[in-house]
Simulated scan of single mutants.
Amino acid sequence: MSKSIPIIVILLLGSLLLWLSFAWEPAPVGKMGHSPLELEARPVGGDFELSSAEGPVKLSDFQGKVVLLYFGYTFCPDICPTNLAIIALALRGLDADALDQVQVLFVSVDPERDTPERLAGYVQYFHPSILGLTGSAQELAAAAKQYGAAYQRNDAGSSAMGYTVDHSAYTYVIDQAGRLDEVLDHATPAEEIGAILRSHLGETNQS
C-alpha cells in the first residue's frame, strides 16, 4: 500500500490555509476535539541529534539561524496541522533573505509510523522550509525532555488508526546561538510568530 499522502489531504490543507488567512479565530485549547498535553517540565533547551530523510541532523547545525521547534506526528488529526499551517503562514510573510535565516523543525513523537521519508513528504505540504525529524524512542524521549515536551500513546480501539498520540503543542523559539529563547502557546497567531522572527533577525542585522 502506498505511503504517500492522499490528494484529499492536499485539498484539505489548502482549505485550512485559506481559512486561517481569512476567517480563523483561535478557540480555547480545552474546547478542541484533541486536547494537547501541558509541558511535562520546565524546558531548558539544548542540542540533540535526530534523523531526517537526508541523514543525521543536529540542532547545532542551524546555529546562526532562528529555529522554530515543534513536537508532533503526521497522523495527528487536528492540532499538528493547525500549528504547522499557522507557522507556514508566518514563513510566507517573510522576505527571501529573512526566510534563509529561519529553520522550522518538526520532530515526530510517533517513531513507529513516522519514517524520515514519510515526514519529508508530510511537511512539504505545509512549507518547503520545514524539516521533519525522527529517531529511536530513546533519542526522542531525550530530546523531548530537554524541551519539556510531553507525549503518550493511547489505544484508539477499533479505529483504523490503531492508536493516537496525545502530546503538548508548544512551539519553541531557539535563537541564533542555539539557546531556547521563548515558548509559544498552541495556535499562536501567524502575525505574532512573524513579529518574533523579525525581532530576532533585526537584532542580528543590526549587530
Rank of each mutant, 00 (worst) to 15 (best):
M1Q: 06
K3E: 07
S4C: 01
I5T: 12
I10L: 08
L11R: 00
L13M: 03
L13H: 03
L13G: 01
S15I: 13
L17H: 15
L17K: 13
L18E: 10
S21R: 15
E25V: 14
V29H: 03
K31G: 07
M32G: 06
P36I: 05
L37M: 13
R42G: 04
P43R: 11
G45Y: 11
G46Q: 05
D47E: 09
A53S: 15
A53N: 03
G55K: 07
P56L: 00
P56Y: 03
Q63H: 11
G64S: 09
G64R: 12
F71R: 12
T74R: 11
F75R: 04
C76F: 03
P77W: 03
D78H: 02
C80H: 08
P81E: 12
A85Q: 09
I86F: 08
I87P: 09
L91N: 04
L94M: 04
D95R: 11
A96L: 06
A96W: 00
A98T: 00
L99Y: 01
Q103I: 02
S108K: 04
V109W: 07
V109M: 05
D110G: 08
R113C: 08
T115C: 00
P116D: 00
E117Q: 11
E117T: 14
E117F: 05
A120Q: 15
G121M: 04
Y122V: 07
Q124K: 15
P128R: 15
S129C: 07
S129D: 06
S129E: 04
I130A: 05
L131N: 06
L133G: 13
S136Q: 11
A137E: 15
A142V: 14
K145M: 02
Q146Y: 02
Q146C: 09
Y147V: 01
G148F: 01
A149Y: 08
S158E: 15
M161A: 14
T164S: 13
T164H: 06
T164Q: 04
D166S: 03
D166Q: 01
A169C: 05
Y170K: 11
V173E: 10
V173Q: 02
D175E: 00
D175R: 02
D175W: 02
Q176G: 12
R179Q: 15
L180C: 04
V183W: 07
V183L: 00
H186V: 01
T188P: 10
T188D: 10
E191L: 14
I193M: 13
I193A: 02
A195L: 10
L197A: 09
R198S: 13
L201G: 05
N205K: 14
S207L: 14
S207D: 09
